[in-house]
Each structure stands twice: as structure tokens, then as C-alpha cells.
Amino acid sequence: MPAVAGPRVHWVSVLTIAFLVVFVGAVVGLIVGDVCYTRPGPMLEVLRSPEVRFAIVLSLITSGASLVLVIGFSIPVGYALSRYRFPGSAVLDALVDLPIVLPPVVIGVSLLVFFRTWLGQWIESIPWLQFVYTPQGIVLCQFFVSASYGIRGAKSAFDSVDRRLEHLALTLGCTHGLAFRLVALPMARNGLAAAAVMAWARAVGVFGPLMIFAGAVRMKTEVMPTTIFLELSVGRIEPALAVAMLMLVIAMVALTLIHWLGSRHRWWRT
């Protein structure tokens, strides 16, 4: 965009950029503090310990499983919210965001309470569907906390696709399902992928509900945030910080991916 005539520096630009620098400076300062506190040698040693390796592997497995669930729900739910208006749709749209604004601990408590009801007890009686204090419970917590981010992202992605192109596809021989698969889905793919990355990053960091619903049992329901808590609770800062640094790297990679997918790069071209 060409520059506007007149002074390039004025009080609005100075003030807003000053706020930006202070905020980013504070965040970077915290990270630099963490980095300065750790030394590579002991950190790598901590990351090789069986407990930490277990937590990393379980984190990757559970967050991967919850990501599959999030994608499975976000695409149809996001599409429905983007395309259809029906009585109560505005209320449903608002309720989708509920897990974002709820304190995460409340999700853990609610899940625990649900599995004390007859329906929850019945589900728990199915051998491979036991959730309370199990790794499956971790997946459930991660799903409930991160699904809203996936759904919201999917809705935005479908909103950005011109609906008239889907209508046109109908006149060109498509069923509604085929128009979705050949037009809406590929055109929304960038936004959907960004939403998935965001939901996955959120799932990796879930902690509060896990403590209540899945517990913090070493080498059983221990994921990365649990490790940080367990290590800090016995005063071992180095291992906690090592895992924290790993989570920071994951967050940075996720952020970079989201920005890359959100850019105009058309990797989805068919």
C-alpha cells in the first residue's frame, strides 16, 4: 500500500507501536529467562529420562487421538454453522464457544460428574471405553478443551469460501455432497489445517481438567503438563523447565505453521 502524504511518525503510531514492543518484550523476556536458567547438557539428560520420555510419547499419542476427533467434529460442525440457519442456530453457535470461556477445571469436574451418572457408569462398563483416570480420559479432556478452537477455525474457513461457487457446482452436475468435497473442502483446506494445528497445540497444553479427571499418576496418565506439575511439586525446577522448553518449541512450531497456512501460499491447489 502506498504511503499517505504527511509525517510518517505521529503520536498514534508511536503509542501503539510502543504498546506492541512492551507486550512482545515481556513475552520474549519470559522465554529468555527460561532459556538462561537451563543448560543444554542437563536438559538433554532430563529429556532422556524414562518418565519424561513416557510423558512426551503419551502427550503425542493422546493429542494425536484428540486431533483426529477434533477434525472429525470440526469439519461438519463448522460447515453447518457456516452454511445453515435454523431456529436456535444462533444459540448453538454461541454454545460452541462455551469450552473456550469456561475455566478448564470446570470441564474436568463436569466430566467426573457425568461419569457418575447412570449413562456415564454404563459407558465405563464397556471394557475399552473406560475414561476416568485412564489415558482415554486424557483424550476426552483434550478433545473438550480444544474442539471449540477447531470448530471456530473451521467455521471461519468455510465462511471464506464463496457459497455461490458451491451452488454453481450443483448446476454443473454435483450433488450437495460432491459440491462439498470438490469445492468447499479444498477451498477451505488452508483454514481447516490452521484450525487443526491450533486445536492440537491447545490439546498438548491441557492441564487443569486432566488433574481432576485423568489424575497425575506417574508413568500412567502423565503427559507433559503433568510432568511439569509433578516435578515442581517436589522442587525439581530443571526437569520441569526442560519439559516446559519442549512445549515452547512445540508452540513455536505450531504458530509458524498457522501463520504459514494462513498466508496466501496455495498448497491446496488440485
Binding site: L165, A169, L172, G173, C174, L178, L182, V183, P186, M187, R266, W268, R269, T270
Partner: peptide
Amino acid sequence: FPHMNVARNVTFPLRA
């Protein structure tokens, strides 16, 4: 369709 080249746009009705 912006995610398809010219050939794929033209063949779209037959592919559908």
C-alpha cells in the same frame, strides 16, 4: 473455481 486450473474447470461437469 480458483483452486483448479483451466483444464480442471472445463472438465468439472464431466468429473462431477
